[in-house]
Amino acid sequence: MTPTPEQVVREFFAVVRSGREPARAAEFMAPRVQAHQVQAENPTTVERTPAQYAEHVAEMLAAWGPFTLDVDEVLAAGDKVYVRWTQHGRHVGEVDGHAPTGEPVVEVASCTYRVADGAIVEYWIQIDRAGITAQLDAARAAGARPALP
């Protein structure tokens, strides 16, 4: 039996997006996924394969360390599933020109996923990038020490 769109997305978050097992992305994603980056100043759409998404999660782990991911809300209607989450990590890798500080960083984000035939085929993601930048700038201004390797 094909899982519901909500079941697909919840399991995707628990297994892949959480950073636990990003290599399993192909179990939850279509071979090609349209990823809409919803940004006021520069909205873009990129196509991602499951392998590219796994690499993306690996990049997040390199930047934020083994982060925690709290799913704050899930709403499902038809083939679409909306998820809002809070991610807690530490700034352990370079991010947008900011050298690692080792300081805690909180990401607040949301995404709407479209699921077809039991796989994510498209999504629209929004991340509070200004909030992340403000945290990185504050850590730098406070003179936080670089993270230890």
Rank of each mutant, 00 (worst) to 15 (best):
E47K: 04
P50A: 05
A51Y: 05
T101R: 00
V115K: 02
E103D: 15
T44R: 12
Q126H: 06
V121S: 00
A51C: 05
A138G: 06
P5F: 00
W85K: 02
G143N: 13
T49P: 07
E94L: 12
V81I: 07
V71R: 10
Y53F: 15
E73L: 13
G97Q: 14
E6M: 04
Y53T: 02
G19D: 04
H36S: 10
P22V: 00
A99E: 15
A23R: 11
A138D: 13
E47P: 00
D117C: 01
V46H: 13
A116V: 13
E94W: 10
I120A: 00
A51V: 04
R32D: 11
R24I: 12
A76Q: 09
D128P: 05
L148P: 03
T101F: 01
D72V: 14
L69D: 09
D96N: 15
W85T: 00
A142L: 12
G118T: 11
A119G: 03
P146V: 08
A54T: 01
R48D: 07
E107N: 12
Q34T: 11
S110Y: 13
P149W: 09
V74N: 08
I132T: 12
A130T: 14
G143P: 08
D72H: 10
E103W: 09
G65D: 12
Q52D: 09
V74R: 03
V57D: 05
I132C: 04
Y113V: 01
E21W: 10
D96T: 08
P3T: 07
M1I: 12
L69C: 10
R24H: 13
Q37M: 09
A51N: 02
A144C: 12
E122Q: 04
R114C: 09
R129N: 14
T86Q: 07
W124Q: 05
E55F: 09
G118Q: 09
Q39T: 14
E107Q: 10
A139H: 08
D117N: 13
T45K: 12
A99V: 05
Q37T: 11
H98T: 01
Q87F: 01
I120M: 11
P3Y: 03
A109R: 03
A99S: 13
E27Y: 06
T68L: 09
W64P: 01
T68Y: 10
A141P: 11
H91R: 05
R129Q: 15
S110M: 14
V81S: 03
S18M: 09
W64Y: 15
A62E: 13
V33A: 01
A99F: 02
P31Q: 07
T86M: 02
R32F: 08
V9N: 03
V81L: 10
M29D: 08
L61D: 01
K80G: 02
V9P: 02
P146M: 10
P100S: 04
D79A: 04
Y82D: 00
P43L: 03
A76V: 14
V92K: 05
Q7E: 15
P66F: 06
V95Q: 06
V71I: 14
